[in-house]
């Protein structure tokens, strides 16, 4: 195979990668709500994403129309988030542990939903909204979903209710002093976030034509990667909320394009999860390392100049 052929072949994988990236971008928006806005690390998503996939796939396999199937899948995801929220606020379990507990609960629940480890949802037999068989169509539909989601969340976080949620994540003590029920807002935030994640799961099941119990493994890391990449991408832009959310979605696309490229170049796919995790670890460490080492260096420099 000559170089040109290879390049064309690579080019052919890009629309599919971009479509999957958009789905991960939607998922990352869910992660953004908890990780960035509420300042909670919520590990529920590894489970709730599969819940979204499983519910959507099973309902459609049972003959449901795609829209109500996706709606119920989203609601199921919200219920997952609510469980984590109750663990965290009502029972005082640290958020990260609450998420892990729910994630484990969902492993069993998801198996029970599907009755087995996976459920096929072939696009040829079902009226799915998007499918990898029609990549360009999927791209357009997913882009519309992303736009709608960004608009809805922009509105939501601009309301009095949404502002109270942002304040909860930013400064809890202040929020309570201003009469905000911080526990309630955390619970709603977790619910909302996992609803978005399950929606992305429902889309992923349709796109890939299956739901598998293992599909959610490491989803939180991919979500964080997209959030982090998104932040890096918009660092030079004015930071209003629409730009931030769009950055997260583009972050999801970039993540998946890089993923696809690495796979195309022949990297052992067994190593991919490790690499994703390491990349996220490095990026999460950057702010800390900057603070710890670079401020000192700067001061020293200033001192030398004086």
């Amino acid at each position: 195979m000559n170089f040109l052929e290879m390049l064309m072949q690579y080019g052919n994988t890009l629309p599919g990668a971009a479509a999957q990236g958009l789905i991960w971008g939607i998922m990352a928006i869910g992660v953004y709500i908890t990780f960035k806005i509420l300042d909670l690390a919520d590990l529920t998503v590894d489970g709730s994403m599969v819940t979204g996939m499983a519910v959507c796939a099973m309902l459609m396999a049972a003959g449901w129309n795609v829209w109500p199937a996706m709606g119920i899948a989203t609601l199921a995801g919200m219920a997952c988030g609510l469980i984590t929220g109750l663990f965290h606020t009502l029972m005082g379990i640290p958020a990260i542990l609450a998420g892990i507990l729910t994630q484990l609960i969902l492993w069993s629940v998801n198996l029970k939903i599907m009755g087995k480890a996976n459920q096929a949802l072939p696009a040829r037999s079902f009226k799915v909204l998007i499918s990898q068989l029609e990549k360009y169509h999927a791209l357009v539909v997913l882009a519309l979903f992303c736009i709608a989601l960004v608009v809805v969340l922009y509105w939501f976080f601009g309301t009095k209710f949404g502002s109270a949620m942002r304040a909860t994540g930013c400064n809890e003590k202040m929020a309570r002093a201003q009469g905000i029920n911080t526990d309630f807002h955390k619970m709603i935030g977790l619910t909302l976030s996992n609803g978005v994640v399950a929606l992305s799961g429902a889309l992923m099941a349709q796109y890939s034509g299956k739901a598998d119990i293992n599909d959610g493994r490491g989803a939180i890391v991919i979500g964080l990667a997209a959030v982090i990449i998104g932040e890096a991408l918009i660092s030079k832009l004015p930071k209003n909320f629409i730009v931030r959310l769009s950055g997260v979605i583009v972050g999801g696309i970039v993540y998946y394009l890089v993923y696809q490229t690495v796979v195309f170049l022949g990297l052992d796919t067994d190593l991919l999860k490790m690499l994703s995790a390491l990349v996220v670890a490095v990026f999460l460490a950057v702010p800390y390392l900057k603070k710890r080492y670079f401020t000192k260096a700067k001061r020293k420099e200033e001192g030398n100049h004086a």
């Binding site: 939501f156 601009g158 309301t159 209710f161 502002s163 109270a164 201003q178 009469g179």
Partner: peptide, 18 residues
Amino acid sequence: ENMSLALNRGKPRGFSWA
């Protein structure tokens, strides 16, 4: 935004623009 949070202290926080 901070001031509007305080302005709504003790009032229901609904879905009107903050």
